[in-house]
Amino acid sequence: MAVLVIADHDNATLKDNTHKVVTAAQAIGGDVDVLVAGSNTAAIAAEAAKIAGVRKVLTAESAELGQGLAEAMADLVVGLAGGYDHILTPATSQGKNFSPRIAAKLDVAQISDVTEVVSADTFTHPIYAGNAMETVQSGDAKKVLTVRPTAFKAAADGGSASVESVAAPAAPAKTKFVDQKIVKSARPELGGAKIVVSGGRAMGSAEEFQKVIEPLADKLGAAVGASRAAVDAGYAPNDYQVGQTGKVVAPELYVAIGISGAIQHLAGMKDSKVIVAINKDADAPIFQVADFGLVADYKAAVPELMSALTAAGK
């Protein structure tokens, strides 16, 4: 049995999500290979080769793979699929884009957002915004899964896998990359941050969101998140969104400010280790999941928190 893990990277560095999905692959069992597909793979492949327990690293390079075009990714992986029983992709927006295309080309089901490997053919994943956990057994010859990285511990380094290059597929005829605007931020990435500070609709404006949430995040060395309500209202960009339809995070510390705790938001953060909620409504559902709740208007509470952190040497 062999498992193919599709690496998460930004054409420069390997992301930790890859290590986490390798852990899921190891729980399935058998040989684990990692595929690094992109426009500049050598350094990333060398990183992937260091993950303990990886048999080999495959690399494929083309402009379209670097742009993450789903058609190119699917063509590549379908071509390699003969050698694998399982194909695992991190459930990032990139992975969610191409993985179902692979499954359909192979005429198999996809199991989305897997959070637990029960056995080589049985997996658990959340449905209904995480209000139910469904365990399914696949009857397909090949299993195509997207894996929720926050549900698995990162595999350690310590391996020395071989690196092999494979041919990239032809450029997709019907899809052309135009451009990409990636926001460069000095803050940690939301998906993998140890601390996340999120703001909700209570902020009232984009200016207030920036004035209140961002300095606190910077003081804590945290990533910035937002509720769907805050994103809908235009207070924060979409890629800040934590929740069922945004990012799922599980940091050491999650600080929710002015967030009521709608079902869909809780789905994205309730696996955080410690949750702090600051909200002036004592009945807000967020307090039902918070380890530490402060019933207060954020306008007063956040400046106080900033000074208390300074006093504590932060």
């Binding site: 139910a132 365990t135 399914v136 039902q288 530490f292 402060l294 106080e304 928190l305 952190l309 006093a311």
Partner: peptide, 27 residues
């Protein structure tokens, strides 16, 4: 293609404590 083995409730998170001040929160 998939057989549903079971559908269960997610692990419940217990509500924690309320703190009075920001300084309490930090400690």
């Amino acid at each position: 293609r998939l057989k549903v083995v079971k559908v269960t409730e997610p692990a419940k998170r217990q509500a924690g404590i309320k703190v009075e001040t920001a300084a309490d929160l930090v400690s």
